[in-house]
Amino acid sequence: MDTADGKRFEPKILGFLCNWCCYAGADLAGVSRLQYPPNIRAIRVMCSAGADPAYVMKALLGGVDGVFIGGCHPGECHYTSGNYYTRRRVAMLKKLMEILGLEPERLRLEWVSASEGALFAEAIKDFTEKLKSLGPNPLKVKKRPGAVVGVKRS
């Protein structure tokens, strides 16, 4: 899908990647020279449960096109149960997004272990395609008259 100004729409994805699995998986994808779209900006978190729902909403309401959370497979959490919390939170967040009028597909949870570089690349490719078909985050194009612009910390 193209944006209003005719440019090809490239979705921006924010990733919360677990240090013990998905982050290493992404790394592996990199060193294995696996091709995947460059649309994701990764934040390394010590556990996928570190992706506080408030931060996920901050990203989405701030105009990010999609949020990707990568955690350890069930039963493999470094902290025993962090990924189970994440799973419940994502279920809640998707409902919340739906109620507010944001497509729940803009949030994706994947289990990616440190050895699954190919799976990571595939997941990002798929998510990027999905977001392209959804189009830009509607909040990005909403004008907020009277807001402070260009918040540049001096």
């Binding site: 402070v148 612009v149 260009g150 918040v151 540049k152 910390r153 001096s154």
Partner: peptide
């Protein structure tokens, strides 16, 4: 922009 003033600048 004309004055070269950034947000939060003195």
């Amino acid at each position: 922009r004309k004055l070269g003033v950034a947000d939060r600048a003195m």
